[in-house]
Design a protein around this nucleic acid. Structure first.
Length: 597
RNA sequence: GGUCGGGUAGCUCAGUUGGAUAGAGCAACAGCCUUCUAAGCUGUGGGUCAAGGGUUCGAAUCCCUUCCUGAUCACCA
C-alpha cells in the first residue's frame, strides 16, 4: 500500500467521524505538496465544504486536527486556503528508502512467460536512401517504447518492415546502371546506403533535366513527367522486377545488400535493434491473397474494371482501393500481408505501429480492414503517431538535399561532446579509448534526450547550430549528475566507509531530504504511466526534475564531510538510489550513463 | 470543404483524473569554485496560456464559437 492510499483511507474515516458521511474515494484528491509550501502531501478540501458546512480553512483545520490524532504517519499539518498540507513522519521516508535500496531494480516489472505479447513496428525505412533525422526520431521513439513496455511487464517483439520494392528503388537502380560505372561501396569507400542514396538523387537530377528539355519543346509539364525516358525506363524496370527478370533481381539484391549493411551500422550507432525484420517484397503477395479471401467472404467488392475495394462508408470513411485493375497491390495490401505473416508467426495480443502522423488516415483504415478480416488485435492496434522534425528553414526534403543525415548528425554530436569535454579539461589522464567512449555516450545522450523529451505528437524544430546543448535540460546534464554521484560513491569506497543494508528509522532528516526520497519513490509510478500513455517524454521530464532536485541537495548538504556517521550513510544511500533511478530511467530512453565525464 | 493534430516567456519545451502565485532550459544581466566533478548552484528581468463565451468554489486543462498552423482525404509508398 502506498502512502497516498494509506492517507486516503485515513481521510475517509476522518470525514466519516467528523461529519458522519461516507464520501466516494474518488473525491479524495491527494497530491504531493508543491515545493514552495511546507509538507509532503496535500489534501484538497474544497469537495467537502458541502458536508462540513464550514469555510475551507475551518474544514481543513478540523480534518488536520482529527488526522493528526488518528493517523500516526502524519507528524504535523498546515493549512493554506483550502489546502491541507501534511508532513509525513521521517521514519516513513527512511523505511521507504530502505525498501528502494533493497529492491533489485526499483520501478521495473520484469515480464514472465504469461505476460501479454506486444509487437512493435518501428523504423520502416525505404532502401533507396540513407536514414535522416526523421528516421532518427522514429527509431529512438520506437526503441524507447519497447524498453518502457518491457519495464511494465510485457513481452515485446521489436520488428521492422523494410520497404524494399517499388518504383523508388528502381530509380536508384537505373541511375546506378546508367551513370555508376560499376561503383561499389568498396571501390568508392562510401557507406552503402549513402552510395545508393546518391544515385537516387542523381536520377532526380537527370529526370528533371529531361522534363525541362521536353517542356522547352512545348510539352505540358504533366505530360513531360510521364514521357521522360528515364521515368519510362524506371517503370519498365519495375515490371521486369515483378516478372522476376534475373538480371534486374540480381541488381536489386546487390544494391539492397549495400543499403542493409549501411543501415545496420547506423542502427548500431543509435543503439537500436530488432527481433524480426520483414520485407515488403516478401509480404505483398500474402496481402493480395488475404484481399482475395476478403473478397470471397464478401468483406470487399470488385468493380467492373476488376479493381478491388473496401467500402468504409459505414465507418464514416471513404472507399479504399486494395487491388488495382491489373491485379497489382498497393500500400494497404502490403500492410495486410505483413499483418498476416506476423499473426501466423506470433501470438500477438497487441500491435503497435510507430509511424509518422502523415499516415493517421492509413492506420485508421488498416485497423478497420484487419478487424473485418478477422485479426483479433486489428481493431485495437495502436498507431503511435509522431510529428515531423523540421528545420528552421522548414521541412526537410531528401530530393532537394535539405535533410539532416543521421550518420552526419551522430558524428557531429560525438565530435561536439568531445570538444566540450576537452575544453572543460575533464578527461585529462584518461586513455584514448575511455575518452572516445565518454564522447560517444554524452553525444548520443544529448541527441536522444533532445528528441525524446518532447511530446511525440508535436512537430519539433531542430536547429543544428543551437538545438544541441550540453547545459540545462539536456542529456549530458543528467549524465553529469550521475557521474558526480558515482564519483562521490567511489570516494566513499576509498575512505572505506561502510554502508549499512538498512538505515535506522529514527534518523532526523531535513524536509529537502525527505522530499528527495519522495521524488525517487515516484519513479515506479512514472514508469507505469509512461507505459500506459506510451510516453518516453514522461520519463525524460521526471528524470530531469529528479536530477535538478538532487543537484540542489548536493549543493546544500555535505555528504562525505558529514560528521554524523548515520546521516552520512543516509546521504550516501540516498545518492546511490538517485543514481540507480537515473541509470534505469534514462536507460528506458536508450541512453547510457558514464562513470565519469 | 471533410477528418485528425497543434497554438503556453524573444527561442526550445514542461505543465498529472480541473486545484495554491502558470514552470524549466536557452539567450541577457548579477553572484557562488584552496571545500564531495562549476556540463553545477543561487538571484533579476521576461506571460492577455491564440481570441471570445460557457460549466465550476476553482479552467492553460472540460464544452461551444472564431482565428492561426500542420497532416490527410492518390489506382505513391
Amino acid at each position: 500500500m502506498t502512502i497516498e492510499e494509506k492517507i486516503t483511507q485515513s481521510v475517509l474515516s476522518a470525514i466519516n467521524k467528523l461529519y458522519g458521511q461516507q464520501v466516494p474515494e474518488g473525491q479524495i484528491q491527494l497530491q504531493s505538496t508543491k515545493k514552495e509550501f511546507e509538507g509532503d502531501l496535500t489534501l484538497v478540501v474544497f469537495p467537502f465544504l458541502k458536508i462540513s458546512k464550514k469555510s475551507p480553512e475551518e474544514t481543513a483545520n478540523d480534518l488536520g486536527t482529527e488526522l493528526l490524532k488518528s493517523e500516526p504517519l502524519i507528524s504535523k499539518f498546515n493549512v493554506i486556503k483550502g489546502f491541507l498540507n501534511f508532513s509525513i513522519a521521517h521514519s516513513y521516508w527512511i523505511e521507504l528508502l530502505n525498501s528502494i535500496i533493497s529492491s533489485e531494480n526499483y520501478g521495473i516489472t520484469p515480464a514472465t512467460d504469461s505476460s501479454p505479447l506486444v509487437m512493435l513496428e518501428y523504423s520502416s525505412p525505404n532502401t533507396n536512401k540513407p536514414l535522416h533525422l526523421g528516421h532518427v526520431r522514429n527509431n529512438l521513439l520506437g526503441y524507447s517504447l519497447c524498453l518502457i513496455l518491457e519495464a511494465n511487464g510485457n513481452r515485446v517483439v521489436k520488428t521492422n518492415i523494410v520497404n524494399d520494392r517499388g518504383i523508388h528503388i528502381c530509380k536508384s537502380m537505373l541511375a546506378w546502371k546508367k551513370f555508376g560505372n560499376g561503383e561499389t561501396p568498396e571501390s568508392s569507400g562510401k557507406k552503402g546506403d549513402h552510395l545508393v542514396g546518391d544515385y537516387y538523387v542523381r536520377f532526380d537530377q537527370e529526370y528533371k533535366a529531361q522534363i525541362k528539355a521536353l517542356t522547352g519543346n512545348g510539352m505540358s509539364e504533366e505530360e513531360a513527367k510521364k514521357q521522360a525516358p528515364l521515368m519510362q525506363e524506371a517503370q519498365e524496370m519495375l515490371l521486369k522486377w515483378e516478372k522476376n527478370d534475373p538480371e534486374t533481381v540480381e541488381l536489386w539484391k546487390m544494391m539492397n545488400s549495400w543499403v542493409y549493411k549501411g543501415f545496420d551500422e547506423t542502427y548500431k550507432r543509435m543503439g537500436v535493434s530488432f527481433d524480426k525484420i520483414y520485407y515488403e517484397s516478401q509480404t505483398y503477395l500474402d496481402g493480395k491473397e488475404k484481399v482475395v479471401e476478403g473478397l470471397n467472404k464478401g468483406v470487399f467488392y470488385k468493380r467492373e474494371d476488376g479493381s478491388v475495394w473496401a467500402d468504409l462508408t459505414s465507418d464514416g470513411l471513404d472507399e479504399k482501393l486494395l487491388l488495382r485493375a491489373d491485379g497489382t497491390s498497393v500500400y494497404m495490401t502490403q500492410d495486410i500481408g505483413t499483418a498476416k505473416q506476423r499473426f501466423d508467426e506470433y501470438p500477438i495480443d497487441k500491435m503497435i505501429y510507430v509511424v509518422g502522423n502523415e499516415q493517421n488516415y492509413h492506420f485508421q483504415v488498416l485497423a478497420i480492414l484487419l478487424d473485418r478480416l478477422g485479426f483479433s488485435w486489428g481493431k485495437g492496434l495502436v498507431h503511435f503517431s509522431y510529428g515531423m522534425v523540421e528545420l528552421p528553414e522548414g521541412k526537410m526534403k531528401s530530393r532537394e538535399g535539405t535533410v539532416v543525415d543521421a550518420d552526419d548528425l551522430i558524428d557531429e554530436m560525438i565530435v561536439t561532446a568531445r570538444e566540450t569535454s576537452e575544453e572543460l579539461g575533464k578527461l585529462d589522464g584518461l586513455s584514448e579509448e575511455e575518452i572516445a567512449n565518454i564522447a560517444r555516450t554524452t553525444g548520443m545522450g544529448a541527441l536522444k534526450y533532445f528528441i525524446l523529451k518532447v511530446d511525440p505528437r508535436k512537430n519539433m524544430t531542430f536547429n543544428p547550430k543551437e538545438s544541441i546543448d550540453f547545459n540545462g535540460n539536456t542529456g549530458p546534464f543528467i549524465q553529469y549528475t550521475y557521474a558526480r554521484i558515482r564519483s562521490v560513491l567511489r570516494k566513499a569506497a576509498e575512505m572505506q566507509i561502510e554502508l549499512p543494508a538498512k538505515l535506522p528509522n529514527d534518523l532526523q532528516i531535513s524536509e529537502k531530504e525527505s522530499n528527495l526520497i519522495q521524488s525517487v519513490a515516484g519513479f515506479a509510478n512514472v514508469v507505469k504511466e509512461a507505459g500506459e500513455q506510451y510516453s518516453p517524454a514522461l520519463i525524460a521530464n521526471y528524470i530531469y526534475d529528479l536530477v535538478k532536485e538532487y543537484n540542489q541537495f548536493y549543493h546544500d548538504f555535505s555528504i562525505l564531510k558529514e560528521e554524523n556517521e548515520q546521516l552520512r550513510a543516509f546521504r550516501l544511500l540516498l545518492s546511490e538510489s538517485v543514481s540507480k533511478v537515473i541509470k534505469n530511467g534514462v536507460g528506458l530512453l536508450g541512453i547510457d550513463v558514464p562513470e565519469r565525464m
